[in-house]
Structure formats: C-alpha cells, structure tokens
C-alpha cells in the first residue's frame, strides 16, 4: 500500500516538476549592470528587472513598496554588496517575505564575492572621513574583467536553480566571455597610448576603471566621499589642475554638475559626464556599450586636450 502511494507521488512529482521547472527565473538586480549580465547568461530563460535605474545614484534609492513586490516574487537577487545598498535594501528584504533572496538563500547573489577589491581600509575608520565604505570601494563592475567574474557567479547560481538549463547557461557564459575578451583587447589597444594620463573626478567611483585602463585620477572635487565641496575645495582642485595641466574632469551623471563646470572653466579643462551603469546615458544599452561610451568620451577629450596644446 505504502509503496503504491509512494509510486503515485513520485509519478505526480515527475509529471509536475518539468512544468514547474520550465518557469523562467525571476531575477532582480539592484543595478541595471547586473540585469544585463544576467540576461547575457540567462537569455530567454530569465525575466530580469532592476531596482535602481542607470542614471540614479545607487547609494540613495527610495525603498518603495513596489520593490517589495518585485523581491517577493524573485527567484534570484543580485546585489553589489559591500554596504552600497545598506541604506535601502535591508528594509525591502525584511518586508519581502521571500526566503529565497534573503542572505544565505538559494537565490542570494552578492556579486562582490570573488572580486579583488580595491581601497579596502587597513586601519580603523571613522565617519570623519566622509561616507566611506569599510569593505572596499564598491564600484567594481566598472572593470570589464570583474564583469566576467560576476557573470560566472550568476551562471553558477542559475545552474543550481535550474539544472536542466545548466548547459545553456554555460554556453551563454562562454560566448559572453569570449565576446568580452575580444572587446577588452579592443579597449586596451585604444587606451594604451594614454596610459598614465591624469584626470580629476567628482566622486571616487572609478578606481577599478582607472586600474584597468591605466588612467590616473589625480584628485576629487568632493573633499571626502559623499561630502559636497566647499569653495575652498574648488580652489584646491583648480590649482591642482592648473599646476599639473590636467585637461579632463570626469563627472558622474547623478551629481550636481555646477561645481565640476565651474572648476573646468577656471582650469581651462573640459567636463565629461561618464556613465556609471548600463542605461546611465543614451545609447548605453548593455555592458559592452558602457565601456564603449565611456572610453570614447574619455579618449576624445584626451585628443582634444592634445590638439589644444599643440
């Protein structure tokens, strides 16, 4: 009797499981870059949405109840980690009522795992140093090599959740990696003549980008991360730019650009607003275009600076 019941249950499970498993994975990324990487890996087998939009400051996102609904239904949550989302993700997760995406759940992805982090403090910190990140600089997706690490992490979790599509995910990942390798070669070739070129940035969002493409950020307009500049800070940056003949100022799309424009005007430099995320500017629709867009702007500025000085 028991055997018969068990057999029936197994049969029902066998019939039902493919139907259940064929549901696409619902993926929520805290930033659109992760949504694009998830799409590169998951293809048609996932439905992905982002919480922050590309031109929004990911430090400050309103924890709107509509995001609670998204997280409630999600199979996978991909987050930046390193306390970047600490101001808004915890209350959303607390209300999500979804064990899959809680810390340690099957669908929880902290994309910073496995990344070689930069600017990890080696001494005790205090808030007197501004809005600092005690675990290291969180803008690591701005290095395409880290994009590969994140994509591999995503593919691993997707395959664990949907083993029947593991082969597809692996093929997609492999394709993405080879495309990124080709693109990386192109980007490095483009930037090679300008390695060591110095620029100024508004916010400290670029250490990974800086390291990969060999530019050197000589200073920031923000005196400390997250602290708006005072006139004295602007004077400090202007004199630095004049002294070191720095002609390019990198601005971030979500910060007020008045200080950057003022400094650039006084220092005879130009402001370029780079995208910090996918969809951070028009024509930046995927992870590849993010680097194409930023590097094109940057190199055009370097070329203009050179022709101006000639």
């Amino acid at each position: 009797m028991t055997t018969r019941i068990l057999r029936t249950l197994l049969l029902v499970a066998a019939i039902a499981s493919p139907a259940l498993a064929q549901q696409p994975l619902k993926v929520v990324g805290t930033i659109p870059d992760f949504v694009d990487l998830a799409r590169q890996v998951g293809g048609e087998h996932i439905e992905a949405t982002s919480i922050a939009v590309g031109y929004q400051d990911p430090h400050y996102v309103d924890p709107k109840p509509s995001f609670v609904v998204k997280l409630n239904q999600a199979d996978v949550l991909i987050q930046v980690g390193l306390d970047l989302e600490v101001g808004w993700l915890p209350p959303l997760l607390n209300q999500s009522r979804n064990a899959r995406v809680q810390r340690g759940g099957a669908g929880w992805i902290d994309a910073s795992e496995g990344i070689e982090l930069l600017q990890r403090p080696t001494r005790p910190l205090s808030r007197a140093e501004g809005d600092i990140h005690v675990f290291g600089n969180p803008h690591y997706w701005l290095d395409p090599v880290n994009g590969k690490i994140i994509a591999a992490h995503i593919a691993r979790v997707f395959s664990e959740l949907r083993p029947e599509w593991a082969q597809v995910f692996a093929e997609n990942l492999s394709l993405f990696e080879s495309e990124l390798d080709t693109a990386l070669e192109r980007w490095l070739a483009k930037t090679a003549p300008y390695r060591g070129r110095r620029v100024i940035a508004y916010h400290n969002a670029w250490p990974y980008f800086e390291r990969r493409f060999g530019i050197e950020i000589a200073g920031f307009i923000e005196p400390k991360p997250g602290i708006p500049p005072t006139p004295r800070d602007l004077v400090r940056v202007i004199s630095l730019m004049r002294q070191a003949q720095i002609g390019t100022l990198i601005h971030t799309v979500y910060h007020n650009d008045n200080p950057s424009r003022f400094v650039a005007e006084k220092a005879n430099a130009e402001v370029i607003t780079l995208a910090t995320s996918v969809h951070g500017a028009e024509d930046v629709d995927d992870y590849f275009e993010l680097f194409d867009y930023n590097l094109d702007l940057l190199l055009a500025s370097f070329q203009r600076a050179r022709s101006g000085s000639d």
């Binding site: 070689e116 090599v145 880290n146 590969k148 690490i149 990386l184 070669e185 490095l188 070739a189 090679a192 003549p193 300008y194 390695r195 060591g196 070129r197 110095r198 990969r212 060999g214 070191a244 003949q245 050179r306 000085s309």
Partner: peptide
C-alpha cells in the same frame, strides 16, 4: 611629471602584457 604628454606612436606598455594582467585577475 610622468607621462603628461603620451605619444600615440610610442605605446608605453605592451598590449599582450595588459591582457595577461587582465586574465591574471581571474
């Protein structure tokens, strides 16, 4: 003043080396 005026014809670093560095991170 290091590399203030880079010369496009004289790339300071070898591309192969940069790519190797990029894969080494992985």
């Amino acid at each position: 003043e290091p590399l203030d005026e880079p010369d496009e014809n004289d790339a300071p670093l070898d591309l192969e080396e940069l790519l190797e560095e990029a894969t080494a991170t992985l």
